[in-house]
């Protein structure tokens, strides 16, 4: 698999403030790369550096295998982007804004604009000036603008900001479609773990300008085992029954009210029956898995090893 984005020890300093420090990341062709980090972690700055809008103070960037230098414009033809809250020419209509975009990008395909507006479910408002748009509509229009030239690489900074829950779900499936059907490579940043977790193939965790970890979702999923959590008012009895009567050894008592069973061999029904028959007061049984959130918190709290390069 080829790498569309590759940075080496990329840094950006504003005066005394280090905004991005020694980031070496790789985004491979055809994947959705989730950029995860709290506000102010340097996600937007990094994306702006990829677009050549902000010049690095150290390190280097390669896009599509070519080094990005001040004045390089070729790779920009192949990139769609939405950085921060999207800006438009407010007095122009949605359609005029997209037309201008296509003209500047040198992209001419009839129906491209209509198709993009359909993909983000913005139909029937093409003729409205953008200044009348709500936050969510602007966000959708921003995505439409980013994808209307069918770019190979899509940089999206907090793309679901301002969308309602339904919109978030639609956008999520749109991103998956863009990747699977149109073969686009996506770099999506977010501070919302749950979002990234659901969509990304690879995750880069950025904190205070440093790339803490770059890891594939698959390896996170496989390394984190599922567990079944029993809520009970009598954890001691519960533990005894599990151990002595049901032959389950791989469990952990959590506080005074819960017992977690890892890699359970029996079904949930069998477990439930076993507990009830032995008079364990069970209030709930839930199957859970370690979420990315826990993984992420572990990483940032533990001050995890800085992954300068992979």
């Amino acid at each position: 698999m080829t790498e569309l984005i590759r940075t080496r020890l990329l840094s950006k300093t504003y005066g005394m403030a280090d905004v991005v420090t020694n980031v070496s990341m790789k985004v491979r062709s055809g994947e959705i790369y989730g950029f995860l980090g709290p506000n102010g972690a340097g996600k937007s700055t990094l994306m702006k550096m990829l677009l050549n809008l902000v010049k690095p103070t150290g390190g280097e960037i390669e896009l599509f295998g070519e080094r990005l230098l001040p004045g390089t414009i070729e790779p920009l033809k192949r990139i769609g982007h939405m950085i921060e809250a999207p800006v438009f020419y407010e007095k122009l209509t949605a359609e005029q804004n997209l037309e201008l975009h296509c003209e500047y990008m040198g992209y001419h395909r009839s129906g491209a604009i209509r198709e993009a507006l359909e993909l983000v479910q913005l139909r029937g408002i093409e003729g409205k000036p953008v200044k009348q748009f709500s936050l969510g509509m602007r966000q959708r229009l921003g995505i439409a603008r980013a994808i209307c030239t069918r770019p190979e690489l899509l940089l999206l900074d907090e793309p679901i900001n301002g969308l309602d829950p339904e919109g978030i779900q639609e956008t999520r499936s749109l991103f998956r479609r863009l990747c699977d059907e149109y073969g686009m490579t996506l770099l999506i940043s977010s501070h919302m773990l749950a979002e990234i977790e659901q969509i990304a193939d690879t995750i880069g965790v950025l904190d205070r300008g440093r790339l803490l970890q770059e890891v594939s979702m698959e390896s996170i999923r496989s390394s984190k085992t599922d567990y079944v959590e029993i809520s009970t008012t009598d954890v001691k009895l519960c533990a005894f029954v599990l151990d002595d009567r049901l032959g389950i050894r791989n469990y952990k008592i959590v506080g005074n009210t819960a017992v977690r069973i890892y890699a359970m061999s029996m079904t949930q029904e069998e477990l439930f029956k076993g507990l009830i028959l032995n008079d364990v007061p069970v209030t709930a049984i839930n199957r859970r898995h370690h979420s990315l959130e826990e993984y992420f918190l572990e990483l940032t709290r533990g001050g995890g090893g800085y992954a300068a390069s992979h």
Binding site: L51, L53, G71, I73, L76, V87, Y89, E90, Y104, M105
Partner: peptide, 15 residues
Amino acid sequence: QNKTIALLFAYPVSR
């Protein structure tokens, strides 16, 4: 001022 310059300068056109 309107930040649209970020849009323009990200186009494959020389600044």
